[in-house]
C-alpha cells in the first residue's frame, strides 16, 4: 500500500512541479506536448495521473504525521483546476468559459467539504480560529487579513477600472441554416433532393453503399483501403472522380484547409475565422453533401449574418470552378476524411 501511495505521491509532485514550471515559464510549455488527435485522451490521462498524485501526496503526508487540513485541500484543489484550465489546455479557453468551469468546480469543492456536518466543521475551523484569534499567530494573521484584504480588493477594482484593450468576443455560427435551394451557374439546386452526380459505382449508377465502402479507413492516419486506390489507372466511377476531386482540392483549397484537410494550410494562420477542419467530427461529418455544395459554391460572402460573411475569406467557388468540379471536390473531402455524408432520412 505504502509503495503504491509513494509512487502516486511521486507522480503528483512531478506533475505539480511541471505545471508550476510551465506557469512561471521555467519549464518550456511544450515539455509534454499536446498533440492534436491524441489531445482528449492525453488530457484525461494527465488528469487521472494528477488525481492519483493527489491521493498519494495526501496519504503520504498523513502517514508522515503532517496531515493536510481539509481547508487547504479544498482551496488547493480549486486553485489546481483554475490553473490547469488556464495554463495547460490549448487552444486557450476564453475567460467566460473558464469562469463557468471555475464556478462549477467551486460548487463541487463546497459539496465535497460539506458532505457531512463533521467535514464542514473541519473545513471552517481554520477560518473560525483566525476570527477568534486565540493564539499569537492567529492574531497576527487576523491583522494581516484586516489590512491585506481591503488593499487587494481595492487593487482589483482599480485594475478592472483602468482602460484596457481586449479583443471583443464575437460568437459566430459555424453551420448556419442553409437555404431551401441555391442557384449556381444559372441552375437551381434544391438542397433536399439534389445528389452528388459523381457518387456512382463503376457502372455509372448512383450508389451510396459502393462509395461508402471505398472511403479511407477511420483511425490514425486515415489511409485508403488497400484495394481502393484512386490513383489506380483502372479506377472507374467513384474512385476516379475522387482523384479528380483531389486534383482540384490541391490546386485550390489546400492553401487554407491544409494538406490533411485539417484547416492548417499555408495561409490559414493569417485568417480569422480560421479555415474549417474537415477531419473534425463536428464539420462535414455532421452535414449533408448538398449543404457543403451550397457552402462551397457561395463561399463566405454568401453566408447569412450569423456566419460573419464580412470576415470569411472563403471564396464563392462558383467564380472559380464549374459545378462538376465543385461536386468532385465535395466527393474528395468525404473520401479523404473517411466520413459519410449525412442523409436526409
Amino acid at each position: 500500500m505504502k509503495a503504491i501511495m509513494s509512487l502516486g505521491a511521486l507522480i503528483g509532485v512531478v506533475g505539480l512541479l511541471l505545471l508550476a514550471g510551465m506557469i512561471v515559464g521555467i519549464v518550456p510549455s511544450d515539455t509534454v506536448r499536446l498533440i492534436e488527435g491524441y489531445m482528449p485522451v492525453q488530457v484525461i490521462a494527465e488528469l487521472t495521473l494528477f488525481v492519483a498524485g493527489f491521493t498519494g501526496i495526501s496519504y503520504m503526508m498523513s502517514a508522515m504525521g503532517m496531515a493536510f487540513p481539509r481547508f487547504w485541500q479544498g482551496i488547493s484543489c480549486w486553485a489546481f483546476v483554475l490553473l490547469y484550465l488556464k495554463f495547460r489546455v490549448y487552444p486557450p479557453i476564453p475567460f467566460s468559459v473558464r469562469a463557468m468551469y471555475g464556478t462549477v468546480s467551486l460548487v463541487a469543492v463546497f459539496m465535497w467539504v460539506s458532505a457531512s456536518e463533521e467535514d464542514w466543521k473541519k473545513f471552517k475551523q481554520p477560518i473560525m480560529n483566525v476570527m477568534d484569534a486565540k493564539t499569537g499567530g492567529n492574531r497576527l494573521l487576523r491583522y494581516a487579513y484586516l489590512i491585506i484584504l481591503p488593499i487587494l480588493i481595492g487593487g482589483f477594482s482599480y485594475n478592472a477600472m483602468i482602460p484596457k484593450s481586449e479583443e471583443p468576443i464575437e460568437l459566430r455560427t459555424v453551420h448556419p441554416a442553409p437555404p431551401a435551394s441555391t442557384k449556381v451557374h444559372g441552375k437551381t439546386y434544391t438542397l433536399q433532393t439534389s445528389q452528388n452526380p459523381y457518387r456512382v459505382n463503376p457502372e455509372g449508377k448512383y450508389d451510396q453503399e459502393y462509395s461508402n465502402a471505398n472511403i479511407v479507413e477511420q483511425g490514425m492516419g486515415r489511409l485508403m483501403k488497400p484495394n481502393a486506390n484512386p490513383w489506380d489507372k483502372d479506377a472507374q466511377g467513384y474512385l476516379k472522380y475522387v482523384r479528380e476531386g483531389g486534383e482540384i482540392f490541391f490546386q485550390n483549397c489546400h492553401f487554407c484547409h491544409g494538406d490533411n484537410l485539417n484547416g492548417r494550410g499555408l495561409h490559414a494562420f493569417a485568417f480569422n475565422p480560421i479555415p474549417a477542419n474537415f477531419t473534425d467530427p463536428g464539420t462535414i461529418a455532421q452535414l449533408q453533401e448538398t449543404f457543403i455544395f451550397w457552402r462551397v459554391s457561395k463561399g463566405g460572402i454568401g453566408l447569412p449574418n450569423e456566419g460573419f460573411p464580412w470576415a470569411s475569406v472563403m471564396p464563392p467557388w462558383e467564380q472559380h470552378l464549374t459545378v462538376d468540379e465543385i461536386w468532385k471536390v465535395v466527393l474528395f473531402e468525404y473520401w479523404h476524411t473517411g466520413y459519410y455524408p449525412r442523409t436526409w432520412d
Binding site: I153, M161, P163
Partner: peptide, 30 residues
C-alpha cells in the same frame, strides 16, 4: 484578417476614487 484599432483613453478619475471607497467598505464589513 480583421484587427481593431483602439485609441487608448487616459485613465478616468473614477479609477482612483472608487477603489478607495470599496476598500473602506471592506474594512467596515470586516
Amino acid at each position: 484578417a480583421f484587427y481593431y484599432t483602439f485609441l487608448e483613453p487616459p485613465t478616468p478619475q473614477e479609477a482612483y476614487i472608487y477603489p478607495i471607497v470599496i476598500a473602506a467598505g471592506v474594512v467596515l464589513l470586516e
